[in-house]
Design a protein around this nucleic acid. Structure first.
Length: 143
DNA sequence: GCCAACGTTGGC
DNA sequence: GCCAACGTTGGC
C-alpha cells in the first residue's frame, strides 16, 4: 500500500466537502507528473489532504476507493493528437480528520520533513509520501 | 497583488 | 533539439 498527498484549494474542493460527499472523483489534473501518480494509485492507498492557498495545512487523510479511469472532463485541446485521452481520475473517500491541522510552517520546521515533495515541488498537486513522512504527519495531526 | 518556480509552447 | 516567451500555481 502506498501513501500520497492530494492538494486542493479549499474554496474549490475542501476536506469538509469530501466528508459530506462521502466520495469524489479527483478530476481536472492536467500535469503529466501528477497524472503518473494518479495512475499508480490503487484502491486502499491512503493520502494526506492538503489545503493550498487558504489554510496551508494538512487537514486529514483520504483513501483511494477506485484506481485510475479516463477523465471525461478533459477538453478536446488537451487530448492527444490521435484523440485518445491521456488524463485520468481516481475516486477518493474521506479518511480521518486531523485533530489539529499540520501547517506548512510546521512541515518546513520539522527536521525529518525537509525532503517532502510538498516543500521541493510545491506546485505539484498529486505527490508521493513516504511511510515515515506519513507516520510523522499523522502523529502531528493527533491520529 | 507580487513574484519565484516550473511546465508548456512555438520559432528557429 | 534548443531556448525564449508565456501561462499557471501557490506562498508570502
Amino acid at each position: 500500500m502506498a501513501y500520497w498527498l492530494l492538494k486542493s484549494e479549499p474554496f474549490k474542493y475542501s476536506y469538509e466537502k469530501l466528508r459530506k460527499d462521502g466520495s469524489t472523483k479527483w478530476d481536472g489534473v492536467r500535469n503529466y507528473t501528477a497524472r503518473n501518480h494518479l495512475q499508480a494509485m490503487k484502491p486502499g492507498d491512503q493520502a494526506l489532504f492538503y489545503h493550498s492557498n487558504e489554510g496551508l495545512a494538512v487537514v486529514g487523510t483520504a483513501i483511494i476507493l477506485k484506481g485510475a479511469e479516463p477523465d471525461t472532463t478533459a477538453s478536446k485541446d488537451k487530448l492527444n493528437k490521435d484523440g485518445s485521452n491521456p488524463w485520468v481520475v481516481v475516486t477518493v473517500g474521506p479518511g480521518t480528520a486531523f485533530k489539529a491541522p499540520v501547517s506548512l510552517h510546521t512541515v518546513k520546521n520539522h527536521p525529518k520533513l525537509q525532503n517532502m515533495a510538498l516543500l521541493k515541488y510545491s506546485r505539484l498537486s498529486v505527490q508521493p509520501v513516504t511511510p515515515e513522512e506519513w507516520k510523522i504527519l499523522t502523529t502531528l495531526g493527533g491520529l
